[in-house]
Design a protein around this nucleic acid. Sequence first.
DNA 1: AAAATGTCGTGTCAATTGTAACTATAATTC
DNA 2: GAATTATAGTTACAATTGACACGACATTTT
Lengths: 155, 155
Amino acid sequence: MENETENAPLQLSKFLPYRLSVLSNTVSSGIAADYQRAFGLNLWQWRVMAVVGECEGLTAREITQRTAMDKVAVSRAVTALEARGFLCRQVDPEDARSSHLGLTQAGQDVYQQIVPLALNHETILLRALSPQEEAILERLLEKLARAASPDHPLW
Amino acid sequence: MENETENAPLQLSKFLPYRLSVLSNTVSSGIAADYQRAFGLNLWQWRVMAVVGECEGLTAREITQRTAMDKVAVSRAVTALEARGFLCRQVDPEDARSSHLGLTQAGQDVYQQIVPLALNHETILLRALSPQEEAILERLLEKLARAASPDHPLW
DNA sequence: AAAATGTCGTGTCAATTGTAACTATAATTC
DNA sequence: GAATTATAGTTACAATTGACACGACATTTT
């Protein structure tokens, strides 16, 4: 007999959460290595730049909501990005606790350089899929995300 | 105009690596919280138990290969699991550097309890998909994993 | 309008993780 | 068969991350 544990209906390599985890880590760390090397940005710093580049004037709070990042992680990333001159804050006149964030000129330059780099990684991935498959994948991920969300645990 | 950056063809929420990352983290941390609470195991400890439960007698090296874990992470997990009496080592008679790992009785008990727990999480996810969709997802993940692999960077 | 409560962001410390060097064995070369 | 090089696993230290609590401001209650 090969396996010790008789009815072990768990084959890790077929287990969806495991596969997602390995795939996601491979992909993310590949991209992260790229902009780490090119601009010294880590994953969270880039994520913050990405959302602010997409939508100027967000507050830290809004970034945590949009990116599923922890608020401490956002705070740290913002601090680092400001220190490097990529991001600037403007205090909200209505609520002095939060600031609206924007890319500086230098930040926009970096942003414009990273975007194609990131998209390139995505393209390499998606080249493995036909356009139909890509569309299907999108739908499936959407469904899975909904099912995984702590808000909709079970219906 | 809504967006500051003119031709920013990057919408983070549509960006595949980002979506994978958020989904994977949500799923994994949900499961991890479960067996953390129930047995005080962290993700890597459980991963090691999972592979050893599936295939008794693996060495640490083989575990790193199978699980995409770092060898240090494996070493730490094994140490912790041995300390808790879930795992035992048997030195390879041919090569004194490595040991073959096996679940103790206590380890097997825990394993048998965690497996359904883990599978349940997977089931909740997969309930969102039809059987066909599930099969398709498997194929797509397989393709993506191949495309993301550092071995096959581009063809 | 004072007091109590809630929220945004940050600082602090502990726990986790990554990197590189190390120990011990093994395999290879000379 | 001695010296070199390679490999399995560990240790030690640095860097990252997470959890909690705090300070500043805002909002609600009394």
